[in-house]
């Protein structure tokens, strides 16, 4: 077994373990911390897949932005929302488990039958920012524009929901 493979298995196990932690924690803060670990493991995996730039973005956006935002909200609304009971309803987990198992089995079955392809170790030129940036801002400029509209919607929406309406102020 090559070093790469051992590394992958270790990081992958950590990733799955932290994912289980997110789902099963009784306390939301713990979930958030597990999530942080999970995001970090994924960033490592991105590097192994020649996506260095995305790995950096992953850390910045997810770990640095999203998890912090979630932690912020947990602080804001306190521990009241946290579910102290088992947290599972009677039939949904079983149904979910069944469906999830089926999904997983289906995907694995499909994936394992994939023909082996010769992989280019230098695929995507290592995903360096310049290459990705050029690609993004030339052919895919439309996507960037749409993402701008999307962020505008999110901005407006957060504003609309978070700000007190004038009527209430008065």
């Amino acid at each position: 077994m090559s070093f790469e493979m051992i590394f992958f298995i270790l990081v992958g196990a950590l990733s799955v373990g932290s994912a289980v932690g997110v789902v099963s924690s009784k306390v939301a803060v713990h979930s958030a911390l597990f999530l942080l670990v999970h995001f970090a493991t994924l960033a490592i995996l991105y590097v192994t897949l020649n996506a260095q730039f995305l790995a950096a973005v992953q850390v910045i956006v997810y770990a640095g932005g999203i998890v912090i935002l979630i932690l912020f909200v947990i602080m804001l609304i306190g521990s009241a929302p946290l579910d102290t009971r088992a947290g599972y309803r009677n039939w949904v987990p079983y149904a979910g488990l069944g469906l999830g198992g089926a999904l997983l089995a289906g995907i694995s079955w499909n994936v394992l039958r994939m023909p082996a392809v010769a992989l280019n170790p230098d695929a995507n030129q290592g995903g360096v920012p310049v290459v990705l940036g050029l690609h993004l801002y030339s052919q895919n400029i439309l996507l960037v524009e749409l993402a701008a509209v999307l962020l505008l919607v999110a901005l407006l929406g957060a504003l609309l929901l978070a700000r007190r309406p004038k009527a209430e102020e008065a």
Partner: peptide, 9 residues
């Protein structure tokens, strides 16, 4: 009350 944001949304 925030009709401006509503219509633009």
């Amino acid at each position: 009350g925030q009709t401006g944001e509503y219509y633009s949304l």
